[in-house]
């Protein structure tokens, strides 16, 4: 199977280990990701706050570039996923907007259709590989890994194309298939604080604290996420959060790092060494099985 791939800016920057682990995981499963040519920033929440029309045009350019390949478009970052879906919806519901954006794109030699399906890697693994398919591919079961599955907001809201908006389970099933123990984590779609962790620290970091503290309280030794901003927020501020609100120590990794690890990819290949809070101890059980 081959997919078109839109990485987004974060996966080339702070979220580098997400891309590394995503590519390694897909490779291990025999799936191919073709990065689309000369993609631009999706605009995220920030661009939308300044000029929404231009934000839509920005996102539509990516879709117009991706579509000619005739493949599903895999979008791993939650913000990118939401913006591309939102653009689709606005283009469908507002003919005037569509006309203006299409004509701007056509002036630059691009055609906006509505052909490519926008898909998250979680959805691809769950639907195209399947729980059974994944189970068969596991080489190093995640024994002793107690994981809090954290989805964050923007992958399920407001466009929940493959799972529930408040209590999704797709990642739970995939991690279980990898041999991990998934702890009960009802906060799985609560906001991580977004960019507030760096701008309004008291508010933003409190949200991150609640998520980390609750994960620990429920017995998790690692939090799994699927968004570069969530991963950054839950991994980068442990000292400051501990000082402000209370002790936290649990590491946060991408779900692709856990799946990839179960598939036999190495610690380095998955970018597990790039995070601030190391996850090595949480993965010890899996190591023992492998040996």
């Amino acid at each position: 199977m081959s997919y078109a791939y839109y990485p987004g800016c974060s996966l080339k920057g702070m979220g580098r280990s997400y891309e590394e682990s995503l590519l390694a995981t897909f490779r291990a499963l025999g799936l191919c990701l073709d990065e689309i040519d000369d993609w631009n920033c999706c605009g995220a929440t920030a661009y939308m706050s300044v000029d929404e029309d231009k934000a839509i045009a920005l996102a539509a350019r990516n879709l117009a570039i991706a579509e000619p390949a005739g493949k599903d478009l895999v979008v791993p970052c939650s913000a990118c996923y939401l913006v591309l879906e939102k653009t689709r919806k606005h283009m469908r519901e507002y003919p005037d907007t569509r006309k203006r954006v299409c004509s701007a794109l056509e002036g630059a030699g691009l055609r906006y259709g509505e052909t490519a399906r926008i898909r998250h890697p979680l959805e691809v693994l769950f639907q195209d590989v399947g729980v059974e398919g994944l189970k068969k591919a596991v080489k190093r079961p995640l024994k002793g890994v107690k994981v809090a599955p954290y989805y964050g907001c923007q992958i399920v809201r407001p466009f929940s194309n493959f799972d529930h908006q408040v209590y999704p389970v797709v990642m739970d099933r995939l991690l279980e298939a990898c041999g991990a123990e998934v702890v009960y984590y009802p906060l799985k779609t609560r906001c991580c604080g977004g960019s507030l962790t760096g701008t309004i620290e008291e508010a933003g970091q409190r949200l991150a604290y609640i998520l980390l503290h609750e994960a620990e309280k429920r017995g998790a030794n690692v939090v799994a996420t699927l968004c570069p901003l969530c991963q950054f927020n839950l991994d980068s501020y442990h000292e400051s959060i501990t000082r402000r609100f209370g002790q936290v120590s649990v590491p946060t990794v991408y779900f692709t790092q856990l799946v990839g690890y179960a598939l036999g990819c190495s610690y380095e290949e998955l970018g597990l060494g790039r995070h601030r809070v190391p996850a090595r101890a949480a993965l010890e059980g899996a190591e023992t099985v492998a040996a």
């Binding site: 029309d53 231009k54 507002y94 004509s103 701007a104 030699g109 691009l110």
Partner: peptide, 28 residues
């Protein structure tokens, strides 16, 4: 700094779409 190759094309698109002020122009 990360950058796309075809910056001219992107700027042209953003220029052309204009300042729509987020107005819906009448929904479907």
């Amino acid at each position: 700094p990360e950058s796309i190759k075809n910056r001219g094309q992107l700027q042209q698109i953003l220029e052309r779409v204009g300042e729509g002020n987020g107005t819906n122009g009448g929904p479907k």
